[in-house]
Simulated assay, not measured.
Amino acid sequence: MPDATIHAVALLTEVLGPILYRAELPNGKRIMAHLSKPLTDAKAEFSIGQRVVVELTPFDFDSARILRLEDSQPAE
């Protein structure tokens, strides 16, 4: 059984590269966040101040995968 992931909303605070961002979680923790494979393939770009949904694993709370903008619907 795969371990459950944790989804949270994060605020993008810095652009570090084409697919890498620094983000801040609601509790104030700063993390590194990278685009998910579908967003990378779609050449998605985000800017500072946008709120995104991120996925963290229970093993590493310092990095996360960006899944989508907070207001957008999940891809099916």
Rank of each mutant, 00 (worst) to 15 (best):
M1A: 14
P2F: 02
P2W: 09
P2I: 06
P2C: 06
D3A: 11
D3T: 11
A4D: 09
A4M: 14
T5C: 08
T5V: 10
I6L: 11
I6A: 05
I6D: 04
H7P: 00
H7E: 15
A8R: 13
A8P: 01
V9G: 09
A10Q: 06
L11H: 04
L12K: 07
L12S: 08
T13E: 10
V15A: 07
L16T: 08
L16V: 03
L16C: 09
P18K: 04
I19N: 03
I19G: 04
I19R: 01
I19D: 06
L20T: 13
L20M: 12
Y21N: 01
Y21F: 09
A23F: 00
A23Y: 00
E24M: 15
E24F: 00
E24G: 03
E24V: 12
E24R: 14
L25N: 02
P26R: 00
P26H: 00
P26T: 01
P26G: 03
N27T: 05
N27F: 03
N27D: 11
N27R: 09
G28K: 02
G28F: 01
G28A: 04
K29H: 06
K29I: 00
R30W: 01
I31D: 00
M32H: 04
M32E: 08
H34K: 07
H34S: 11
L35C: 04
L35N: 01
L35F: 02
S36D: 13
K37M: 11
P38A: 01
P38C: 03
L39N: 07
T40V: 15
T40P: 12
D41Q: 15
D41S: 15
D41I: 14
A42S: 08
A42N: 06
K43I: 05
E45P: 11
E45K: 12
E45Q: 15
E45L: 06
F46S: 09
S47C: 06
S47R: 07
S47W: 02
S47M: 05
I48M: 10
G49M: 00
Q50N: 07
Q50H: 03
R51S: 04
R51H: 13
V52F: 05
V53Q: 09
V53C: 08
V53T: 08
V54K: 03
V54M: 03
V54R: 06
V54L: 04
E55D: 08
E55N: 04
E55M: 12
L56C: 07
L56P: 00
T57E: 13
T57Q: 08
T57F: 00
T57R: 07
F59S: 10
D60S: 11
F61V: 11
F61Y: 05
D62N: 11
S63E: 13
S63Y: 10
A64W: 02
A64Y: 04
R65A: 07
R65V: 13
I66G: 04
L67H: 02
R68H: 07
R68Y: 03
R68F: 02
L69C: 06
E70R: 14
E70L: 02
E70D: 15
D71P: 05
D71S: 14
D71W: 15
S72R: 05
Q73H: 09
Q73Y: 12
Q73L: 15
Q73V: 13
P74I: 14
A75N: 10
